[in-house]
Nucleic acid binder design. Structure first.
Length: 748
DNA sequence: ATACCCTTCATTTTT
DNA sequence: TGAAGGGTAT
């Protein structure tokens, strides 16, 4: 990219006052313009950074923006509010939520937490899950919120099947969330809009403070975000929105493309600037992108151009099935690597659905190629991470019954479901929270003395953490908790690979917290919890790593790679057609457009003639109609090589690469079990003598025979009498935990 | 309490 | 297909 801004970019930078719509084509240097614009405001116009707010969709975009502005201005931009809509809303609500009945320490529920609450609401209402699937309730509630529709309005609008049920669930759900001082993602936006609408004074403070407002990816704003933007900008009207209607790919989530299409109607005095020079891709790639998106009707006409070379044709790869497709991708990667002198980090493999990553992943792993998967299984959604966070959440907010339930018996404290039911009954009877009920465990009838003690101990433990909360930083507090409850030790009791990974993840979390404390001005527990709740996988994606990147087309938005493979280009998959036959072809096409324009030099379009979808159901597929929308002269079909070599490889799973270890986040490595050789040597024979009380005489190191596992050696023994438990290592190296009284062991 | 078997779900995309 | 969660036998 050239150093100086081009004339249009300069216009966009200098046009600071009044509403401005920047239509920025893919690869047109959008981020550069935004950051220079902010720097211009500060340096040339003397605007204080504290008066600028920039809203983005992802933390990554926000972080990048902040970093680049800091670089331009040479200093930390503490006072400037750059963040995602959700993060900024959370920040405002931490300060002002009390106006609308939330406490400062409200917690943010993720989508699985949401589901739990919905189930709870449904069971209270006696609505069966067959009648109204919780997930569909969730999505309809979310839609309602995105349209700023409350339960009552939802009911009167009476839309869709079971509208009454959903309205009831919606209301009950909100009641539960309120009682727990909790908000879901949508609530963050709903509440900040409600706050501003109901409290003019509060709104005025923010309107006055933020004289310059900037919104990135405006084409993806939903109605709530639109309202929020409008409210904030109403006073100064210095609102700059940046976007590209051709890259609107979140309508399914409530994004309203008319926000960008109607900007000029909302702000008649708005300037419009079009960034149309592309600095990223070859002419060939741009031509293909333009030809595709031209098929859409609802869009603003624009003409992207570039001074770059024509570049190579776009390659089309055909596989017989998804494995074959994957192998062809790998072959192309290898060719690019040797001929094009590229590193693994230059490649991106994009797909429509996360499930498609498997075949690619399998082949990459076989070949020993390092790769990173973005999305899919998220760090903060892992069990161990959620456990630790649940402790923190409970410490932050004892009303968070969800977190309480999650960890009350983790690690095991002998507090089971039956006990918690009694606690719950007591809590309901006394009209107190679950947590407070634990503190009064001695009053609960029907609990054994030991159980009461367990509950009290747990309560005291948490109380102690709550006291420490004020003197300790978040990371120290987390360390105290992890150590205090023996979380890691508990994991290490079972030394499986899986648990080892879990321990590492917990440590990773702890170090992430240290980092958080170092870099944040507000290092409070609440701020940390807010941040992690709003974190996604793409945010941690490390572009420096020399590894092939795998991700969905959606995740790829905003990124670029020298070489891009778009896989699974089959009708029905991409464009996707759902089970009900519904498909938004224009949005799918925009998604394809986004994918194409991620590529700088080389683009590969791949499909398979047959693909397994949900297992055995293989379906024959037509190549995607989108392929036909690209002019033939831009394409180069790779001769399908369906020779015996390919089929041989398909069976043996061999590839030209030697297997090598690599780490792919979130995927457990296929590690061969620690091979213990056959134990054929006869050890000391222990006579099988069943004792009167049913105990068994086996000790550590003695040999036993199990009716189904065969012969093995006792490596651990715990418990006494009838509850004797043994860990036995059998012939194939597998260790089994056995309850001696059930195992039918014989001496051997 | 654990281990295994069964069912179900996911397969659209995410803050 | 395979992961994950529930239920049941041990």
């Amino acid at each position: 990219m050239s150093d100086a801004l081009n004339p249009v970019q300069q216009d966009a930078v200098r046009c600071t006052d009044g509403p401005l719509l920047i239509l920025s084509g893919a690869g047109s240097g959008k981020t550069r313009v935004i950051t220079h614009r902010i720097a211009h405001l500060v340096r040339e116009k003397g605007v204080s950074t504290s008066r600028i707010m920039a809203l983005t969709f992802t933390n990554k975009a926000a972080g990048e923006m902040k970093e680049r502005v800091e670089k331009l201005l040479g200093g930390a931009m503490r006072s400037m509010w750059i963040g995602t809509f959700h993060a900024i809303s959370a920040r405002i609500l931490r300060r002002e939520g009390h106006w609308i009945g939330y406490e400062r320490d409200f917690i943010i529920y993720d989508t699985s937490d949401q589901l739990t609450v919905i189930r709870e609401a449904m069971s209270n209402l006696m609505i069966s899950e067959d009648r109204c699937p919780p997930k569909s309730a969730r999505s309809r509630i979310s839609h309602a919120k995105n349209g700023y529709v409350d339960p009552e309005a939802f009911l009167s609008s009476g839309s869709g099947p079971f509208a009454e049920d959903v309205a009831k669930i919606y209301r009950a759900y909100q009641q539960i969330m309120r009682a727990r001082n909790a908000m879901d993602f949508d609530d963050l936006l709903v509440n900040v809009v409600a706050l501003f609408q109901q409290h003019a004074g509060v709104l005025k403070t923010y309107q006055d403070r933020f004289r310059y407002l900037l919104v990135d990816e405006y084409q993806d704003t939903n109605h709530l975000q639109y309202m929020l933007t409008k409210l904030l900008a109403a006073r100064h009207r210095n609102l700059c929105v940046v976007g590209d209607d051709d890259q609107s790919i979140y309508q399914w989530r409530g994004a309203d493309i008319t926000n960008i299409l109607n900007f000029e109607r909302d702000y008649p005095e708005a300037e419009v600037i079009r960034l149309e020079q592309n600095y990223r891709s070859t002419q060939t790639i741009l031509k293909a992108a333009a030809a595709v998106v031209k098929h859409n009707r609802t869009r603003k006409e624009k003409k992207l151009w570039t001074e770059n070379d024509a570049g190579k044709p776009i390659s089309v790869l055909q596989g017989v099935d998804e494995r074959d497709e994957a192998r062809r991708v790998l072959a192309a990667i290898e060719r690019e690597r040797t001929e094009g002198h590229r590193g693994f980090g230059d490649f991106a493999l994009l797909y429509r659905t996360n499930a498609q990553s498997r075949a690619l992943e399998d082949e990459l792993r076989n070949a020993g190629i390092p790769y990173v998967i973005v999305g899919g299984l998220r760090f903060y959604e892992r069990r161990e991470i959620k456990d630790v966070l649940a402790y923190l959440k409970l410490v932050a907010n004892p009303r968070d019954a969800l977190s309480l339930r999650r960890i009350v018996n983790v690690p095991k404290r002998g507090i089971g479901d039956a006990t918690m039911l009694k606690v719950q009954d007591f809590a309901v009877e006394k009209e107190i929270g679950l947590y407070d009920a634990l503190g009064r465990a001695e009053e609960i009838v029907g609990l054994s003395g030991a159980m009461t003690k367990h509950l009290k101990t747990f309560h005291q433990h948490i109380e102690a953490f709550r006291e420490q909360k004020t003197n300790l930083s978040v990371d120290q507090l987390a360390q105290e908790i992890v150590a205090g409850v023996g979380y890691i030790e508990d994991l290490q009791k079972d030394r499986s690979d899986e648990n080892q990974t879990r321990v590492e993840n917990v440590r990773e979390l702890l170090s992430a917290m240290e980092e958080f404390v170092e870099r944040s001005e507000d290092a409070s527990l609440e701020a940390f919890l807010s941040e992690v709740s709003l974190f996604t996988d793409i945010d941690t994606w490390d572009e420096e790593r020399d590894a092939v990147t795998l991700m969905t087309l959606h995740s790829a938005k905003g990124l670029e790679f020298p070489v891009v493979f778009i896989t699974g280009l089959e009708d029905g998959l991409f464009p996707i057609i759902r089970a009900d036959g519904e498909s938004d072809l224009e949005e799918e096409r925009r998604l394809f457009y986004v994918g194409i324009t991620r590529a700088r030099q080389r683009l590969y379009l791949c499909y398979a003639l047959q693909r397994r979808r949900w297992g055995s159901l293989g379906y024959g597929a037509e190549p995607s109609r989108f392929l036909r929308e690209i002019p033939k002269e831009l394409l180069e079909y790779e001769t399908p090589r369906l020779d015996e070599d390919a089929s041989f490889r398909s069976r043996s799973g061999r590839t030209p690469y030697p297997p090598r270890r690599h780490s792919a986040r979130g995927k457990k490595q296929a590690v061969a079990p620690a091979g213990e050789e056959d134990q054929t040597a006869s050890g000391d024979s222990v006579r099988y003598v069943p004792l009167e009380d049913g105990t068994f005489p086996f000790d550590v190191d003695s040999w036993v025979i199990h009716p189904s596992f065969g012969r093995g050696q006792v490596v651990e023994k715990s418990g006494l009498g009838t509850s004797t438990r043994l860990v036995v290592r059998f012939g194939d190296g597998r260790k089994k935990r056995l309850m001696a009284k059930y195992a039918h062991l014989e001496a051997g």
